[in-house]
Every structure is written in structure tokens, then in C-alpha cells.
Design a protein around this nucleic acid. Structure first.
Lengths: 232, 232
DNA sequence: GTCAAGGATTGATAAATGTCAATCAAGGAA
DNA sequence: TTCCTTGATTGACATTTATCAATCCTTGAC
């Protein structure tokens, strides 16, 4: 792949401060692929041969056990995913599948580790990324262990609203079946949870959500930056 | 603190490969403290001023929200904790409290970050530690989302047995109230779960657990390295 | 030894959540 | 357009888990 093909990669926090030559070397070994929707990119337990960078489209990260499946996260452009497995040279803990058509850069894990060893700026960026990812998963664990499914939904909606710039109405980023799995509940339970939140001014129309009275919903949801602020 | 006082710190993966001079500088700013049981070491939301290294005793890491509390992890010697907050220079996401008398080294976070910038070997070790911690939390999330409380207990017992060297009987490392919280259930539910596992050869006598037929318990628990192997 | 305190267990009951089945609604293909 | 597929919703019911209260048991202080 030509190093200057995708300036948005270079602009990512992870690559922004790399030495120019290093970045070029890394990109020379990388390649871009286009995938249709519903394609398995990664399976749990496989060796982590590539660091993935999502340029376009949506990807879901999920895990399975004993015939059950749960959605752990979704990624939107431009983000890397499964960095920890790449760094540890350990098997993937999650599977990844495209939700839409997607354009993805694949960087050989070996090259990433080599660049890490050679470029202090890159090393710093990787650590920042990992520490942030770590904290993000811890927040998610607190969400799961300390809150009921109704409380999780309420706080999820407040987070999404924030992401949408604080507007009173916004679209869910994917279907409700996936949202239910992400929040650790069944679609039926989610459907009933939405109905319960009507009492706090939440209205839905398909995938569109309107929050009538944010303060009222917050009184119920009790959002907390140490759980719900997914940026620090 | 005198740098050579505690060779077990130097032996930790995190510090093992540091340059000698760097390690000494780091230790000069550090100090050791002894704490009685049940002492709050860290509160959620506080700035992360120190990286902690547990030399002796047991420490619990927990989180609270809306009057509820949940145990997220316990640490045993010799381990560091809350590395991610130190690296990010962000507030603690968990609180920490001694469970027993404990001896702890406190290293100013600023010094850790300086050492990280100056010593590539230390940087590598930090990344390895973070990536491992990250993966460990992901495994825990899978455990929580994919398994019932009974299945979580069964797999927990198999992990503890493994840690005890595979012996058929071993002691729980702390009381059942804490174990229940760690597994995300109430003490009453845990008590009943232990009773249910009698059908699979699990016997308890206070804090002592005996696994009569490991293969039988495994048939029920279906342990999976991508969830239960907490070392890779 | 006795006693007090806290954890563990048990029983009864309630609440939360999941399952199954049926129906409904929306969107894409022809 | 019409049909068909898939996701969403609803109702009835089962299961899991929590709550509350009582009792039991262990352990440590005296």
C-alpha cells in the first residue's frame, strides 16, 4: 500500500506522532481490503496476524461460548481494533464481523511490534490507546455489574444523545437486536425497557429516539463520569 | 526508599528489564507503607498520584454506584495495581481497600511516566502489562455476559483449583460474601449455587472446597481458555 | 469457658429477566 | 405494486436472581 494513500490513518492518535520513515515502512507492508456486509473478519482464538484499521463502514466485535453469542462493542471509522492481541501476540479474544460494506487496512502484527520497539513516539501512542481501552472495558464492567438492564439502557441513551451533540432526538447506530445484546439483555426485554422509559419522557419511532426531558431521564439514570464518560 | 530494599519489586516483570539507574531513580522517590486491615487506600474519582505495588497482604478493588458496591478484583503479592490510571494520568476508576494487614510501595505516578518516556525496556513492560490487564478484563466481561451465575461459580472453582496446583481440595482466598460480589451475585444466591454444584461433585466445608470429579464438573462448566485462562 | 458479632445458610416471597409463540411492521426484490 | 424476509413487539409463562427475615455457625474478646 502507498503510504500517503490514506491521510486519515496518519491522522489517527496512534500513528500521528510516528517518525515519517517508520510510518512509511509500516504502510508498505499493509494493504486495504473491501468487504461486503456480514463477513467474518476475525474468529475467536485465531492468532492475531493483523492489526485492523477501519476506514469506512461499521464492524461489530462479539464473543461466543457454549452456543451463545454476545456483542461486546462496535467500531466506527476511523479506529483500530484488537490492538491488545497484536501487542501480546496472543489469540483474538473477540470475533469481528462487518455490519455494512467496509474498507479496512490490515497491518501485519509483526510490523506493528517492530515499529513499537523502534519508535518511542509510537510506543507512547500504543500505551495511551491500550490504557484508554482498558479503562473503557472497566467502565463497561461497572455498568454491567452495578446497574439493572433498565438503568443501562437509560444511561446508554444519554451517552448516545451526548455523542449526537446533545440534540433531543437521534438515531440508534444499529438495530435493536444488536443493542439488546450489547446491553446484555434479550430483544424482548429491551422492547419492554423502552416502554418503561416512556415514563421518563423517552419516545421511540423505529430506530429514532427522542428524549423529551433530559433532566428527568438523568434523575432516573444517574449517569456517572466514572462509568459513562467513555473518552477519558 | 533504598532501591535494593525489596528485590521482589525488581523481580516483577514490570521492572525486571529496566536500566539499573532508572530503577534506582524510580525507587528513590517511592516509599513503603504498612496498613492495617479494612483501610481505604484509594477512592474512585481521585487523581492517580501513585502507582501501588502490593508486597504483602491482600487488597480488594471495588466500585460503587448509587449506593451499590461490587468487587471487581483482588490482588495478591507481588502485583502492581491501577497502572492504567497512572499512565493516562486520569482519575481512579476503582477504589482499593486492604483486606488484611498489607505492605505497599507507593511510586509517584509522575516518576512512572517519566521513566516510561526515558526507558524503552520499561515502556515495553508497561505495554505488556496493560495489554494483559486489558485482555483479562475482556475475559471477565465474556464470563459475565455469556454465563449464568452457576456457570460462573463452576468455572471460578476450576480456575482456583488450577491455581492451587490442580489439587482436588483448596481454600477459597476470601470469604463467600466477597466471592459472591466478585461473581456478580448475592451471598444467598452463592450459597444456593454451591448446593446446586453438589450434583457435580463439589463439596464445601466452610472456606474449603473439594472437587470430587473434575471431569464431571468440567462437563457442566465447559471452561474455555479464551475466558478462563487468565495468564495469556 | 461464655458471650457477642458477623458471616453463612435456609425458607418464603418478590422482582427481574429470559423463553416461546404469535403477530405486526418495515424495507427490499422482483 | 406485491410478496417475502427480517426485525420488532406483545402476551403468557418459566427461570433466574434478589430481597427479607430468621436461624445457625464460627470465631474472637474477655
Amino acid at each position: 500500500m502507498r503510504p500517503d494513500d490514506f491521510p486519515e490513518i496518519r491522522a489517527l492518535p496512534l500513528f500521528r506522532d510516528m517518525e515519517e520513515e517508520r510510518f512509511h515502512a509500516l504502510m508498505r507492508g499493509a494493504y486495504v481490503q473491501n468487504f461486503p456486509p456480514q463477513v467474518d473478519l476475525i474468529r475467536e482464538g485465531e492468532p492475531s496476524d493483523f492489526l485492523h484499521v477501519l476506514l469506512d463502514g461499521l464492524v461489530e466485535l462479539f464473543a461466543t461460548w457454549n452456543g451463545r453469542e454476545t456483542l461486546l462493542a462496535t467500531t466506527r471509522p476511523v479506529t483500530t481494533f484488537i490492538l491488545a492481541a497484536t501487542i501480546r501476540d496472543a489469540p483474538y479474544l473477540m470475533a469481528a464481523r462487518t455490519m455494512t460494506r467496509a474498507r479496512i487496512v490490515l497491518i501485519p502484527s509483526e510490523d506493528v511490534r517492530a515499529a513499537f520497539d523502534a519508535d518511542p513516539a509510537f510506543a507512547r501512542a500504543i500505551v495511551a490507546d491500550l490504557a484508554q481501552g482498558y479503562r473503557s472495558v472497566v467502565k463497561n464492567t461497572k455498568d454491567m455489574k452495578l446497574r439493572s438492564s433498565l438503568e443501562r439502557l437509560a444511561n446508554y441513551l444519554l451517552r448516545e444523545q451526548r455523542r449526537a451533540g446533545g440534540a433531543p432526538a437521534f438515531d440508534l447506530p444499529f438495530d435493536k437486536r444488536r443493542l439488546a445484546s450489547l446491553l446484555g439483555m434479550t430483544p424482548e426485554n429491551l422492547s419492554r425497557a423502552f416502554k418503561s422509559l416512556q415514563a421518563y419522557g423517552v419516545a421511540t419511532d423505529g430506530g429514532r429516539v427522542a428524549i423529551g426531558d433530559q433532566a428527568d431521564l438523568e434523575r432516573f439514570a444517574k449517569p456517572n463520569p466514572l462509568i459513562d464518560d467513555r473518552t477519558t
